[in-house]
Amino acid sequence: MFIQLNFESDDPIYTQLIHQIIEGIAKKKLLPGDALPSVRAMAADIGINLHTVNKAYQHLKQEGFILIHRQKGVVIHPEGVAKADTVYMESLQKNLRPFIAESIARQVSEEAFLKQCRKLFNEINEEGETK
């Protein structure tokens, strides 16, 4: 599996796991209906506590990225991820606000900020399109 966690990072492991799985979906490395390892298997594979994996999976389930079946296990949502709606766009704005504020405080220009956003967006999007 493509999961690579940074155990030295300030970001919690479960958050890194969430982000890696979502990026895998965005890059089409994980497709609707694809199976993910069980909580125990994922924890053993990457050497982390099973409660950490469970926390990440529960968040992903709540956000509609995965389904957890008693018999089928953990799968990427078979119908794909729901399209962005008003609630998501409000959340996006709320989450971007501190990054924008810090960038302004650090004297990053709007052009440089948007260039970084475009670069990352295109990098992830292009990897997904080549699959």
Rank of each mutant, 00 (worst) to 15 (best):
K131L: 01
V108A: 03
T52E: 08
K83Q: 05
L36W: 04
K83L: 10
K115S: 09
N125S: 14
T15A: 06
P32W: 03
H19A: 07
I18H: 02
I22R: 05
E110I: 10
K119N: 11
M42T: 12
E63D: 07
V87T: 11
A41Y: 05
R97P: 01
Y88G: 06
G128V: 04
Y88V: 11
Q71T: 06
E127F: 08
A84W: 05
K27Q: 06
K115F: 14
F99Q: 10
K61G: 02
P37Q: 01
Q58A: 03
L60T: 06
I13C: 04
L120I: 10
L5A: 05
S38R: 00
F113K: 13
F113W: 10
A112S: 12
G128C: 06
Q16H: 03
K94N: 15
V39N: 03
E110H: 12
L50W: 11
G24D: 05
E90R: 12
K27E: 04
K131F: 00
L5Y: 00
A43H: 01
L60A: 14
L5W: 00
Q20I: 06
E79C: 06
L36N: 07
I46L: 07
R106Q: 13
K72Y: 09
K94T: 15
K83A: 14
P32R: 01
R40Q: 15
I18K: 03
I25Y: 00
L67S: 12
F2R: 08
K94C: 07
A41W: 03
A35G: 13
E8K: 12
H51E: 10
N54L: 13
L17F: 02
G73M: 02
M89T: 15
I25H: 00
L96T: 05
P98H: 10
F65T: 06
G64A: 02
I22C: 02
P12D: 11
K27H: 00
K131V: 08
Y88W: 15
N125H: 15
E63S: 09
L30M: 03
A44H: 11
Q62W: 00
E129P: 01
Q4E: 12
I68E: 13
M42G: 14
L114M: 14
T86Y: 07
R40T: 09
K28R: 07
M42Y: 05
A44D: 13
S38W: 00
K72C: 13
L31Y: 03
A101T: 09
Q71C: 02
L5H: 06
V87L: 05
R40Y: 10
T15D: 12
T15F: 03
A44W: 05
I22F: 01
E110G: 09
N49V: 09
L60G: 07
L92M: 06
T52Y: 01
E111A: 13
I46T: 08
F113I: 15
Q107K: 15
I48L: 01
F2D: 11
Q58N: 12
P98M: 07
R118F: 06
L30A: 02
V74D: 05
L5G: 05
F7K: 15
F7G: 11
N95K: 14
K29Q: 15
L120A: 07
F121C: 12
G128A: 01
V108N: 03
I22Y: 00
M42E: 07
